[in-house]
């Protein structure tokens, strides 16, 4: 059934209405003054334990990578580049062969996750971390080694309280502390 158009008028308020509307606005303000409803995350003291589905930092599992270049080809910003390195050839022991692996430039990455989704062997994966800080731009260009390391949230590393938000029909979002056990 297609949508219907419904004509409406903005409600009118008279002089008496204006007085009562003033009062109800003030009462509502006072209500929230006494019972505030806050979502604020006290960030460096608390951090959100993100979902596993969160599209956070991207990490390479080198063992699974077959060097197919799909990730570099699909990357919309050109953040993912293939590099060639010499690795021992399993077929000819003692010989070396050229293998291709992706590396990422976090200056350019927009975390669309196309590379993760297009990887035919699940060699790339998202880590539910979004608050890694780099001290200079050069650090953001990952090499093969650092691309394989899972980044750790600096807040979590410094012992911040893990929290997560759960939906609530009365208060919208409620911040709940995450216990050690249920983190993963």
């Amino acid at each position: 059934m297609p949508a219907k158009f419904v004509h409406k008028k903005t409600p009118k308020i008279g002089v008496l209405g204006a007085i009562s509307r003033n009062a109800s606005a003030l009462v509502l303000g006072l209500k929230y003054f006494f019972e505030p409803n806050r979502f604020t995350l006290m960030y460096p003291r608390e951090y959100i334990v993100l979902d596993k589905r969160y599209r956070g930092f991207i990490v390479l599992n080198k063992n699974k990578c077959i060097g197919c270049e799909s990730c570099a080809r699909v990357c919309p910003t050109g953040a993912m580049k293939m590099i060639k390195i010499e690795v021992p050839d399993p077929k000819n022991p003692g010989k070396k062969k050229i293998a291709k692996y992706p590396t990422i430039n976090h200056q350019r990455c927009v975390y669309c996750g196309f590379c993760v989704d297009i990887c035919p062997t699940e060699a790339l994966y998202h880590v539910p971390v979004h608050d890694v800080v780099y001290f200079n731009l050069a650090d953001m260009i990952q090499d093969l080694e650092s691309f394989q390391k899972e980044p750790v949230s600096p807040a979590a590393a410094e012992g911040a309280i893990p929290v997560k938000y759960v939906f609530d029909p009365e208060r919208g979002l409620v911040k709940v502390r995450v216990k050690e056990g249920e983190k993963k």
Binding site: G29, Y32, F33, P36, N37, R38, T40
Partner: peptide, 10 residues
């Protein structure tokens, strides 16, 4: 502080 309490902040 009062405005912040009403406005969902600290």
């Amino acid at each position: 502080k009062a405005a912040a309490r009403v406005q969902m902040r600290y």
